[in-house]
Simulated assay, not measured.
Amino acid sequence: MYREINPHPLLAAYVDAYWVAAVTQHSRQRILPDTCADIIFNISRDVIAVADGEQIAPHTAFVVGTMTAFQDSEMPANTAMLGIRFRAGGLNAFTGLPLQLITDGHLSLKETAADWHTTLEPLLAKEISVRGKIHCIENFLLQRLPAAHNNFRKIQHSISLIQQAQGKIPVAALAAGAYMSTRNFERHFLQSVGVSPKTFTRIVRFLEIRRQLKTESHTHLLSLALDNGFYDHAHLTREFKAFSGESPSGYQQR
């Protein structure tokens, strides 16, 4: 079972969704890059193992950074997890954590936001229902709603431009639009989002191609490659495989 819950409108600039995943049998899933970072709570009765064999006790949480490649994830039987999926830049705005420290990795919530660990985890442990836990998280976030400082607004505007252009926009143009030097822009973007602007544009372009493969089944792959700024079909295939672990044609056929 997997479901998503929309956040409060005041949180929508920072939080993409809350999500709940629960299985009764062992499950394996491929997770693809999506430009987001997550805080994930173990709401099971048992300890669960995450990447690298790290053990996550019940009612504790870990933070997953922005991904630049696919990851295969396993959920043991009778496991349940509750996540906060932050939009690009959202987790940094709330915690001040330089997101590049956990790119393609994870840390316990205790290591990344000690005050969240000591306050939020005990609150969630007291709540029995998933709805109650989400309500608790929402109130916690609303009480800590960050002020949208100037750099945050600039980076968010740049993210919007990248998404509107479907990843086909040069970094120099983004830096100029943010009234920053390219080097300064790249530094702020990396800290806020966890990946460089160039990598972010590649991920956004990958997500757009994946959408097109899913919704436009008759699209010729060479046309798809050229329309999305690739030199040829082979270039598209290499890039798509790097993010998803499979070829565009393989993804299109399943």
Results as ranks from 00 to 15, higher is better:
residue 251 Y to S: 06
residue 176 A to Y: 11
residue 212 Q to F: 00
residue 156 Q to I: 02
residue 227 D to R: 08
residue 222 L to M: 12
residue 206 F to G: 01
residue 146 P to Y: 13
residue 230 F to R: 07
residue 157 H to G: 10
residue 87 R to Q: 12
residue 63 V to P: 04
residue 50 V to M: 00
residue 89 G to L: 00
residue 248 P to H: 10
residue 71 Q to P: 05
residue 240 F to R: 04
residue 69 A to L: 12
residue 89 G to W: 03
residue 193 V to K: 02
residue 243 F to D: 01
residue 18 Y to Q: 00
residue 119 T to S: 15
residue 125 A to N: 09
residue 182 T to R: 11
residue 118 T to A: 12
residue 29 Q to F: 11
residue 164 Q to K: 09
residue 163 Q to M: 05
residue 2 Y to D: 10
residue 170 P to F: 04
residue 218 H to D: 13
residue 176 A to I: 08
residue 58 P to G: 06
residue 2 Y to W: 05
residue 58 P to A: 10
residue 200 F to Y: 15
residue 80 A to T: 14
residue 108 S to Y: 06
residue 122 P to Y: 05
residue 241 K to S: 10
residue 66 T to K: 08
residue 175 A to N: 02
residue 20 V to C: 04
residue 24 T to I: 07
residue 44 S to L: 08
residue 14 Y to Q: 03
residue 104 D to A: 02
residue 105 G to M: 14
residue 158 S to N: 08
residue 153 R to N: 13
residue 43 I to Y: 00
residue 230 F to A: 08
residue 27 S to A: 13
residue 188 H to G: 07
residue 113 A to L: 12
residue 167 G to C: 03
residue 222 L to V: 14
residue 126 K to M: 03
residue 135 H to T: 11
residue 136 C to E: 04
residue 105 G to F: 11
residue 197 P to S: 10
residue 71 Q to I: 14
residue 71 Q to C: 14
residue 200 F to L: 15
residue 106 H to I: 02
residue 27 S to Q: 05
residue 25 Q to L: 06
residue 10 L to S: 11
residue 227 D to Y: 05
residue 188 H to E: 13
residue 31 I to D: 07
residue 210 R to F: 02
residue 79 T to M: 11
residue 210 R to A: 05
residue 247 S to Q: 10
residue 156 Q to V: 04
residue 23 V to L: 05
residue 119 T to Y: 02
residue 4 E to N: 03
residue 64 V to E: 02
residue 112 T to V: 13
residue 204 V to Q: 10
residue 76 P to W: 09
residue 74 E to C: 14
residue 184 N to Y: 05
residue 93 A to F: 10
residue 29 Q to I: 14
residue 215 T to W: 04
residue 104 D to S: 01
residue 13 A to K: 03
residue 37 A to H: 00
residue 194 G to P: 01
residue 88 A to Q: 00
residue 201 T to K: 08
residue 144 R to A: 15
residue 29 Q to E: 10
residue 9 P to Q: 04
residue 254 R to C: 14
residue 121 E to G: 01
residue 43 I to Q: 02
residue 225 A to Q: 05
residue 112 T to Q: 13
residue 100 Q to P: 08
residue 252 Q to A: 13
residue 216 E to C: 14
residue 20 V to A: 03
residue 140 F to D: 08
residue 81 M to Y: 09
residue 92 N to G: 09
residue 132 G to D: 01
